[in-house]
């Protein structure tokens, strides 16, 4: 599996790991911030949504159970993705999950609908996560190294 990852040069590996760690850092930070803020809810964000699934997002806000669920998924999603990317634990799954979350954010409030460019930070981070998923490094640097090694033996 991903034998090509062994073929990274030292500088390629360094920059990919660095990218993985900083994106993880960003995710974990946002997750913790929400976790430690008892007042935080995604309601405001969802209510502002004006993209493809706006009706669905609005309906989530009207249902307290659904909203609590979305909030929980958001907080723990960000925390786990962050930890996964930084520590290199199930990092490929974390990369895909992170890209998915960002896709949801992007589509909920597409920047171009409120007078901004098509490209925003979310989209760039999303693409960077796809790069990380396609060029995995966690089996070389990260906790996945142990899993990889155990599987091999």
């Amino acid at each position: 599996m991903h034998e090509n990852s062994n073929q990274f040069t030292k500088s390629q590996l360094t920059i990919l790991v660095l990218l993985r760690v900083v994106i993880g850092y960003h995710f974990l930070f946002l997750g913790l911030e929400k976790f430690f803020n008892p007042d935080w809810t995604s309601a405001g964000f969802l209510l502002q949504s004006n993209g493809l699934f706006a009706d669905f997002y609005h309906s989530v806000v009207e249902n307290a159970n659904k909203l609590a669920m979305v909030d929980l998924c958001n907080i723990w999603g960000q925390i786990l993705i962050g930890v996964g990317l930084i520590a290199g634990l199930f990092a490929r799954t974390a990369s895909f999950a992170g890209a998915l979350i960002l896709l949801l954010y992007y589509s909920a409030i597409p920047p171009f609908l409120s007078g901004n460019l098509f490209i925003d930070g979310n989209l760039i981070e999303l693409l960077a996560l796809l790069i990380l998923a396609l060029f995995p490094t966690s089996q070389l640097i990260g906790l996945d190294y142990f899993i990889h090694k155990a599987r091999k033996s």
Binding site: R20, Y25, L28, F29, V83, A87, G88, I141, G142
Partner: peptide
């Protein structure tokens, strides 16, 4: 091996400080 596996984990500590 340990260095390779845990190289990035200390970042978690730095993040909590940050």
């Amino acid at each position: 091996d340990i260095l390779k596996g845990l190289a990035t984990t200390p970042i978690l500590g730095f993040l909590s400080f940050d």
